[in-house]
Design a protein around this nucleic acid. Structure first.
Length: 670
DNA sequence: AGTCCACTTGTTTTT
DNA sequence: CAAGTGGACT
């Protein structure tokens, strides 16, 4: 076990009051959190069940759990909570849903469900879904700021806001009717619950006596409030964050929460971690110099003892094709020369579309790669289908799931039947599923159709009963066989290969569910809980990680790279309009783009290279590109520009030590 | 219900 | 320029 440096040790041992740890990139913040949990348990006699550590991603939570486990003796960690914000919220709602007027088995709507629901509402209210994304944003922002529909309606000034507020009202009512919540509700509802039921809050405060929060700069208003309410005047907490790595402001994250802490908890102690254990000092100097261009409340200077390291290269390429080719060749040669596995190399970019050409080039050179992000597993047709079956199974009120499932596979229930069923169910204040076998429905529908609906419902009720038995997963497998889903997929798939792949996803999903149920320590997990966890992604990623593991160059967006590190890093597309992104230039949010570049740079352990193209095809036409302003902000003596020989004569002549800046200025003029 | 064409639209997305 | 969407048509 590595020794902690004095600052880290201080952060671990300080337990007498609220603590903010400002942890620079690579300064060992995860070590501090995990060691602190161990310290609390082993030195301070705090039982693990009273400790709660919160992160943003399942991956981070998983890693933290594993590291704590390696520090503790068997049994010491019993009851310890290490979870994501959303998982914590889910646990609270799961136990307290009665106070919120919800029923057991409630559904969690994901991004796709939300969009479908909003489209539906807007279709009904406004006969169109113009500006859906905008309205979704409004609603999301309101939820992040704990503003309920009624308040939003009052506050709405512009026509846009008013529209959004009306949709918000309908949206929230529909969710309630469906016995469903969305991701934001998982945070918002506990906060509202605690505000209205102090006795419930008291119970949770008794349960959570020490709190640790990771990536604190990424919290939004409701998340901060949740933490604040749970810790309150006892103020036993440690939050760790880095304002320079705040890259999710566009999603409601409020890095100001770091400062807010000082006001809300005057006794707050601040510890800064500035020693970096990851990168060479040259890489760190670049990162420091770049980020110094942003305003800072907390000044910090990262340093390291990892040696100077190689110069940072800036590779000028003539177009986007040359850029991808260059990176592929660089990686190929470096891999052969150093014998390092491909997994040691990472290619980072601003937007997912940049990955496409790169992918082709890697394929062409037969370089294995792993692409993270992209089309989500849960966006797949077959996964949505099966998920809908699962949801309808545990939550019959979920009309969304009902509609998705009813004709997959074909049950000869058309849109007219469904419309009549919907109207009837609405008039009786029931869900479509509940209304599907009511006698009164016969007045509106022909017997042929009521029979089809009734048959479906009886079948589904049967599946539900089987699931309550000994072997729920087995029951689900038979359900999939029962509806002959495989055949349905084969009919719709373009080839056998695609069909096999899709069917694989279906079994994968059920396997993941099985794993969640099996790996549950205290045996309290119901199938309802397991399905909820599934929507929150956990476990699924775990399984995927286990199955992958193969060597390959890592490709991902700069956003996705946060928290990771690689010996060799390539950051591509270092151009104006890409990084910083065009819309960020327009919206004047350059600082966040700079932090994004900072995050990218600080991912590199030993070797870092930037690439940019002088021209690139965009929206069909060839445009001249300007190297990113961030390159100009980096210390020139640490950079080594390559590929300039292709530049026009007069620029070539300008080459020389002191002429570098002048040359870059000329290059920019193009 | 499925196919085709004309038209729009190009960021990042932890859960 | 391409991919994805929506409307119209078969």
């Amino acid at each position: 076990m590595s020794k902690l440096n004095p600052r880290q040790a201080e952060a671990v041992a300080y337990i007498s009051g609220p603590l903010l740890v400002l942890a620079g990139a690579g300064s060992g913040k995860t070590s501090v959190i995990t060691r602190k949990i161990a310290y609390l348990v082993q030195q301070c006699g705090v039982r693990a069940q009273y400790i709660c550590a919160v992160t943003f991603t399942n991956k981070a939570a998983r890693e933290m759990k594993a590291r704590v486990a390696s520090l503790l003796k068997a049994g010491e960690g019993r009851g310890l909570t290490v979870s994501t914000f959303h998982n914590l919220g889910l646990n609270i709602i799961r136990r307290e849903y009665v106070h919120l007027g919800y029923k057991p088995g409630f559904s969690i709507f994901d991004e796709g469900d939300i969009k479908a629901l909003l489209t539906d509402i807007m279709q009904k209210e406004y006969q169109g879904d113009d500006g859906l994304d905008e309205i979704k944003n409004y609603i999301g922002n309101w939820k992040n700021d704990l503003i309920l529909p009624e308040e939003a309606l009052e506050k709405a000034r512009t026509p846009k806001e008013q529209t959004a507020a009306v949709v918000y009202l309908h949206y929230q009512r529909t969710l309630k009717a469906y016995n469903a919540v969305d991701f934001d509700d998982l945070i918002l509802m506990p906060v509202k619950l605690f505000q209205e039921h102090p006795e419930v809050l008291e119970r949770w405060r008794n349960r959570i006596r020490y709190m640790l929060v990771d990536e604190y700069q990424d919290t939004n208003t409701s998340q901060y409030l949740l933490v604040k309410m749970l810790v309150q005047e006892r103020a036993q907490f440690t939050v760790v964050g880095d304002d320079d790595q705040s890259i999710y402001a566009w999603r409601g994250a409020r890095p100001e929460n770091l400062m807010q802490l000082k006001d809300d908890f005057p006794s707050l102690k601040v510890v800064m971690l500035e020693q970096n254990y990851r990168s060479t000092s040259r890489i760190l100097r670049c990162a420091n110099v770049l980020i110094a261009n942003n305003p800072h409340v907390f000044e910090k200077q990262l340093w390291s003892e990892m040696g100077h390291g190689d110069p940072i290269r800036v590779l000028r390429c003539k177009n986007e094709d040359g850029e991808a080719e260059r990176i592929a060749l660089e990686i190929l040669t470096l891999h052969l020369k150093t014998q390092r596995p491909y997994a040691d190399f990472a290619i980072l970019y601003r937007g997912n579309h940049q990955a496409k050409l790169m992918e082709l080039k890697l394929q062409h050179h037969q370089i294995p790669y792993r692409l993270s992000g992209g089309t989500s597993f849960f966006a797949r047709q077959e996964v949505k289908d099966v998920m809908s079956y699962l949801r309808l199974l545990v939550n019959p009120d979920d009309d969304n799931a009902f509609l998705r499932v009813i004709n997959v596979p074909r049950r000869e229930i058309g849109s007219t039947t469904l419309e009549k069923l919907g109207n009837y169910a609405g008039s009786r204040d029931r869900s479509m599923y509940a209304a599907a076998d009511e006698i009164g429905l016969g007045e509106h529908l022909d017997a042929r159709f009521t029979e089809r609906l009734g048959r479906f419902k009886r079948w589904m009720d049967g599946v539900r009963q089987n699931c309550a038995g000994e072997d729920p997963i087995g029951a689900l497998r038979s359900m999939v066989m029962d509806i002959d889903y495989e055949n349905w997929i084969r009919q719709n798939a373009s080839s056998d290969k695609v069909a096999d792949f899709r069917m694989g996803n279906v079994w994968f999903l059920l396997d993941a569910l099985k794993n969640i149920l099996e790996k549950d320590e205290d045996g309290q997990m119901t199938i309802e809980d397991a399905i909820a966890k599934l929507v929150l992604r956990d476990m699924l990623e775990r399984q995927q990680e286990e199955e992958e593991g193969a060597d390959g160059v890592q490709m991902m967006t700069l956003h996705a790279s946060k928290g990771l590190e690689f010996p060799y890093v390539f950051i591509m597309g270092m151009e104006e309009e890409i990084l910083p992104h065009r819309s960020s230039i327009e919206a004047d949010t350059i600082e966040e783009e700079r932090r994004l570049a900072y995050v990218g740079i600080t991912r590199a352990r030993q070797t870092l290279a930037f690439t940019y193209a002088t021209r690139r095809k965009q929206y069909g036409e060839l445009i001249d590109c300007t190297p990113s302003r961030f390159l100009d902000e980096l210390p020139p003596e640490d950079l080594q520009w390559e590929g300039l020989e292709e530049a026009p004569q007069e620029q070539k002549a300008a080459r020389g030590n002191d002429a570098l800046a002048a040359m870059r200025a000329m290059l920019k003029k193009g």
